[in-house]
Structure formats: structure tokens, C-alpha cells
Design a protein around this nucleic acid. Structure first.
Ligand SMILES: [Mn+2]
Ligand SMILES: [Mn+2]
Ligand SMILES: [Mn+2]
Ligand SMILES: [Mn+2]
Lengths: 228, 228
DNA sequence: TCTCATAATTAGGATGCCCTTATATTAACT
DNA sequence: AGTTAATATAAGGGCATCCTAATTATGAGA
């Protein structure tokens, strides 16, 4: 499990991580950042100060962190590179989701604009990564879609998988193996007691998914007129 | 716990550089390494000791450095990744030589075997990079070709460009613009006094190339029976 | 053999990111 | 208002790579 650590990578991973966590512009607790990056809170805190010094984010003590415009631009640029590489690795090289994600997480830090743009063109300017997440355009604003975690659906509700949250590589592997893909049709058949595992119908196949996993599957609800 | 530290790029660049310089298995002076990497001789010397400690090379003081089998394997693995990426960047993304080389020099450090092999397959297992240098195979030995620098040719001699030495990115750009490519037919028309610039016929076009540049163009001689 | 350019080493620092342990501060809940 | 759990900061290091300046060792040519 080797991770290259040129000193630019660290900064980029902080920014990307913050952008990923702060889905709706909320403040991101430093603790979350530390946890996601597997780093001590002390180190994360130090780094947050450094990044603030560079004008990339603002830290409100005891509340959390918010990216500045500069910081958000940087972060979206990294997400763009990440997701474009994912397209290449999945569609052209035929690699499985987990490798796609892990390799992209390295390549994203060594992709200058000329390379990224050429790759974008070569791929035909895709709009979404293989996991269904939107690819920020070279310039302009990333459109945000309304999504609902599968874990929030009730028995009988139906939807279409829009995207998978990518935080966890292992989970990607798990979902890949179970053919959970953007575009899959999904319907909740049963929820075990105490907010337990979901029995779902996924593109006609019966599956059981734990709640934790279901939280990472983001759905667009399909109008189900009183199916219950 | 998982290390977030991996200063692998530096080590890899040392190994790759040594392999590139030591064309015929000769000892490489530490001074050369330092120069090529734009690093002080003290730092290069330190690093050489470290690499020796890791069993990747042997240093004979006041003579130079030679890669061990391990070191050579590592170096060829890096050259392989570099040249495969170059193929992709040139043929698929259509980037110019200088960018091809510079981007490949970053990507080469972030390419695990699974990625490299998938890329190799996707490219159709090419044998040479866009500059004509051979791509080391996944396993097996790199074949060595007999070459002559263009600067060693006399007036009237002819040959075919086999490959370009890649040390200097600027030079790649220069040669790219002048359509000096592997496979180009070349013939020395005139050599200016004091081993000066060469007037050459390159694929029918008349060109003038400085001696320094000519040293980087490696030729396969064509049997020219008394053309002078 | 002797000289001197070349190569190597020593000494002392700097940088960036990370760590643990200990202490202070604050928000939030009873 | 007072307690407590979460959060922040302070103190003291480690590690890998790189730096400059000064000194020493070597070997190749005069
Ligand atoms: Mn990454
Ligand atoms: Mn993705
Ligand atoms: Mn490189
Ligand atoms: Mn090349």
C-alpha cells in the first residue's frame, strides 16, 4: 500500500477531501478531515492553519472549515482530474472500480492542465465518472444534482442509482462485484429491524445491503404513486 | 499504520538517470548524476550512499557508480513506465514531444504494475517510445541496438535515425519542430570548420544542426559504398 | 615523484509533513 | 451555572531530501 507523497500531493488531498465532505457548503470539522486522511487531529489542525495562511480555506474554531473561492477552484480541478482518469482507467483500460479509484487518486496529482484537457478531449468530454459523480468542467460551475441516500428510502420506494460516494475503496469493490452501477433501478423490498440491512430489488436481482453501504448509494427517486 | 510517506520519486529518478547515462555498463561518476538531476554533488553523494545501503548500486570511490541487478531491474521498470506513457501521450492524446516527455516523467512514478500492464496491452505492446527508445518488456531482457551519434558521421555518410536521447526536454522540442523522427533518412552534406554545425539532408529537406544537437541523434549507418 | 584538479566527506542547517503527550479552551447538555 | 466531551494548541521530536561552506583524500598527468 504505497502512497507517493510529493509535497504538493498532501495539500491537494486536503482540499479534495474537504470539498468531498462539504456536500452542501457546510462547515467541515477538522476531525473529519483527519479521519478521512488517516492523520492525527494535531497534524490536520496544523495543516489547516497552513492552508488558511495560503488563503485556500477559512477555519472557524470549534465549528469547522470552509474552502475559499481559490480553495474550491483548486479542489474542483483535482476532482476533475481524478474523474477523468477514472473514465480512462475504466473504459479504456478495463480496470475494476477499486483500482480505478486508487490509481486515479495518484494520477490526479500529476496532471497539468495541458494533459488533463487533452485527456478530456480524448475521452469525448464525459460528464460523469464511472461511479456517476459529475466531472467539473475546465471552466464554469459544477452542476449539483438532488440525491437521496438509499438508506433514506422506505419500503416500497423506488429509484435510480445516480452515483456512488467514493470515500471508501473497499466499498467500491464490494458494490462493483454486486453490479451496483449508476443507472441501476432499485426498489426497497424490506428493511430489517433497528434500521438494519435492506433487501432490495436491483435491476430485477434480489440483494441485501447493509445500512452503512446503503448510505453510500445515492438515488434519484422515481415517482411511485402509493406503492405501499 | 499506513505510511503517508513515500519519497519514492527521488530514488526512482536517481536509478533511471544512472541507467540512462551508463549506456554500456560503464561506471557513472557521481558528478554526472548530480548535474543531470540539478542537485548538489554533496546531496547526490549522500543519496548514492543510501542507495548503496539499499543494495541498488555499488559505488567505487573516485571512479563512479554501477547499478546492481536489483537496481537495474528497478531502473528498467521505470523506463518501461516512462516510455509506455510516452506512447499514450503522443499517439492517443496527440501531445508534442516536450510535453510527452515531461508528463511521462511524472506519470512514471505513479504507475503500479497493474496499471502499467493494462496500459501496455491497451497500446498493443509497443516496442519503442515515440523517440525511438526501446521499451523494456514486463519480464525478460532489454535488447540493445548498435547506434552511432549523428555527430560522428563524416561528410557523405548516410543513415537512418534510430532514436533520440531524451535527456534534454528543450532539445526534444527543437527536434520535434524540425521533423527529426525515428526512421528519418539522413545524410551529411557538410561540416563547418572546427567540428561545427552540420548541414544535413533530412528526408530530402536541407537542415543545419549544431554539433551538440547532433550528438543526441542516434543513427544506424546505411552502407554507403564510397559515396564521397 | 610531485602537483593539482577532481571527488569525497564533514559540519551545520533548512524545509515540509508527520507523530505523541500534555494542556487549555469552548460548546453543549444537564 | 456547572460539568463534560469535543476541539484546539503547545511542546518536543522524527524523517527524508536538499542546501552551502570548508576540509580532506585521491589519482592522473607533468
Ligand atoms: Mn490523491
Ligand atoms: Mn469516481
Ligand atoms: Mn520522473
Ligand atoms: Mn522517449
Amino acid at each position: 500500500m504505497k502512497e507517493l507523497h510529493n509535497f504538493a500531493e498532501s495539500e491537494e488531498m486536503y482540499l479534495k477531501t474537504i470539498a468531498e465532505i462539504s456536500r452542501h457548503g457546510n462547515l467541515v470539522p477538522v476531525t473529519y478531515i483527519a479521519e478521512r486522511l488517516s492523520i492525527s487531529t494535531v497534524s490536520a489542525s496544523e495543516m489547516v492553519h497552513r492552508l488558511q495562511g495560503r488563503g485556500l480555506l477559512e477555519h472557524t474554531p470549534y465549528k469547522g472549515v470552509r474552502l475559499t473561492d481559490d480553495g474550491l477552484n483548486r479542489a474542483e480541478s483535482i476532482l476533475r482530474r481524478h474523474r477523468l482518469w477514472e473514465c480512462f482507467l475504466a473504459e479504456h483500460l478495463g480496470l475494476p472500480w477499486k483500482q480505478v479509484h486508487d490509481f486515479a487518486c495518484q494520477l490526479e496529482h500529476v496532471s497539468e492542465d495541458a494533459l488533463t484537457d487533452a485527456l478530456d478531449k480524448h475521452l469525448g468530454f464525459p460528464s460523469f465518472c464511472p461511479h456517476g459523480n459529475p466531472i467539473p468542467p475546465a471552466q464554469g460551475v459544477l452542476e449539483v444534482r438532488e440525491t437521496t441516500p438509499l438508506s433514506d428510502l422506505d419500503v416500497g420506494q423506488e429509484g435510480v442509482v445516480l452515483c456512488i460516494r467514493e470515500e471508501d475503496g473497499e466499498m467500491l469493490d464490494y458494490l462493483d462485484a454486486r453490479a451496483v452501477r449508476p443507472g441501476s433501478r432499485v426498489r426497497i423490498e424490506e428493511i430489517a429491524p433497528y434500521d438494519g440491512p435492506r433487501s432490495v430489488l436491483l435491476d430485477g436481482e434480489k440483494q441485501v445491503l447493509g445500512r452503512e453501504v446503503a448510505e453510500h448509494i445515492l438515488i434519484e427517486l422515481v415517482n411511485d404513486n402509493e406503492t405501499e
